[in-house]
Design a protein around this nucleic acid. Structure first.
Length: 415
RNA sequence: CGGGGUGUCGUAUAGUGGUAGUACGCUUGCUUUGGGAGCAUGUAGUCCCAGUUCGAUUCUGGGCACCCCGACCA
């Protein structure tokens, strides 16, 4: 994409009312626009990142048998009353609305109830199990206090997978597998080293859950690291005698290292909670009816994007990991070399790279360099008159800020 | 939801009970062109509603929005 065709602009200042680093940088660089507190629009660059993250997740979900679907935002009150979760005392962040005839509807904050209801049409026999439907869909949560930029929104894209298994054993094998799948995802986003599988309470979903917590100063949670090797931790809020006993932990609070952290994913064993409440059964080989054993697995995609920015930036701007950078290459054409720059742009596109090409004329080199660093694409290619005289150009590593001079002819081999 | 703070061009800010200023941006022209250039030019603003007042952007009341701390976070 050519810079001159990109409508989003970089800003010199961050908005004064954004304090979080992720929102400051993403707004300054033209990735997102704030509509309301906790409600963000994704501009062309931002959407590219969202889509890259979504695709990485999609790939991993598909690998373990996930089948993508897309459910509705509007929710039937009746289904939620069956599990008690329509009640505002039980679930306090519903957005509720009404039809013209006063029928109450909700805007989905998760999708167990409608999905279980849907699956009653599709699960009959043990032969139908296990199955793993998932979706990447917009959730609405009426948070009392939206904050920290993309970290806690009222409307956000979420990947939610649900597992339907024949029994506890089958479920647990998959649940264990999902820990690895989640870590794969976070590794690809460059957060693997800082991310801990964290023992936590399961809220209204289940007794316990595992959260995936990434160490960050911007985090809202505090974790105690139990095992550095196994990447195991426990949420400070849930550190108590019962949980230590239930997980057979031999630990003392004072020996543990603590860290602020961001919850970037969670997995729950739901057991029979929803299948019983909504009567989702299957017939076994022996002709017996049994409830389906369930689990659910969530990742908030904007929050994940925010977490990546929080842990990958410097004083100049964002430093995207290659896998989710909006473009592979940021091509900077300085003055008087437009012909060559255009040719190289075409050459890169032909070879399958995605390129953001700064083709602005009458824009000083300094502005282009600063914008490139702010936007944060990992590789910058700089074409300028001086180097071009010797048939050379520069390649800059955004992260290390290291600049290499290479011959124009060798460019494609080096990428 | 409790507490606190803030609302002035697109952005960042100054100021005032009496013509609202600056910088950045944007327009136009010229000069520049390797780390946010220079000169000139034009452009655009007091969150909303009421009250007090001859006159309110400023004072008072209400509303709305945003931010921070806490609580909450299925």
């Amino acid at each position: 994409m050519k810079f001159t065709q990109l409508f989003s602009k970089t800003k010199k200042d961050s908005p004064k009312d954004e304090v979080s680093k992720n929102a400051q940088l993403l707004i300054k660089a033209g990735y997102i626009h704030k509509e309301l507190a906790g409600v963000y629009t994704y501009l062309p660059l931002g959407l590219r990142v969202i889509n890259k993250i979504s695709n990485i997740i999609r790939e991993e979900m598909n690998k373990v048998g996930g089948q993508e679907i897309l459910m509705t935002v509007l929710q039937d009150k009746g289904l939620w009353e069956k599990t008690g979760r329509w009640n505002d005392d039980v679930v306090d962040d519903w957005f509720k609305t009404k039809l013209k005839n006063d029928t109450e509807l909700g805007l989905g904050f998760t999708h167990e109830e409608p999905l279980v209801n849907l699956m009653k049409n599709h699960i009959n026999s043990y032969k139908d199990l296990p199955i793993y439907p998932y979706q990447i869909q917009t959730k609405f949560r009426n948070e009392l206090r939206a904050k920290s930029g993309l970290m806690r929104g009222r409307e956000f894209l979420m990947k939610d997978m649900y597992s339907f298994s024949k029994d506890k054993e089958e479920h647990e094998a998959f649940y264990e597998k999902m820990k690895g799948v989640y870590m794969n995802i976070f590794n690809k986003l460059g957060l693997g080293d800082k991310t801990y599988i964290t023992i936590s309470s399961g809220g209204s979903f289940s007794k316990y859950s595992y959260e995936f917590q990434t160490m960050s100063e911007a985090g809202e949670d505090i974790i105690y690291i139990i095992d550095q090797e196994k990447k195991l931790a426990i949420n400070k809020d849930d550190f108590n005698e019962e949980i230590i006993k239930d997980f057979n932990l031999e630990i003392k609070k004072e020996n543990l290292i603590s860290s602020k952290s961001i919850e970037i994913g969670d997995i729950y064993s739901l057991g029979f909670k929803y299948s019983e409440a909504m009567n989702l059964k299957y017939t076994t080989k022996d002709g017996e009816d049994k409830f389906v054993y369930m689990g659910c697995y969530g990742i908030g995609i904007p929050r994940l994007m925010g977490a990546v920015v929080e842990s990958n930036s410097d004083d100049k701007g964002i430093v995207w990991p290659k896998e989710i950078s909006p473009f592979d290459i940021h091509l900077i054409g300085l003055d008087k070399v437009a012909d060559t720059s255009n040719k190289i742009y075409d050459g890169l596109i032909e070879r399958g790279f995605s390129v953001l090409y700064d083709d602005r004329a009458d824009t000083s080199a300094g502005i282009k360099f600063n914008d490139a660093d702010l936007i944060g694409i990992p590789i910058q290619i700089i074409i300028g008159e001086k180097k071009l005289k010797n048939n050379e150009l520069e390649m800059k590593d955004r992260k290390t800020q290291e600049i290499k001079t290479v011959s124009v002819d060798s460019l494609y081999d080096l990428l």
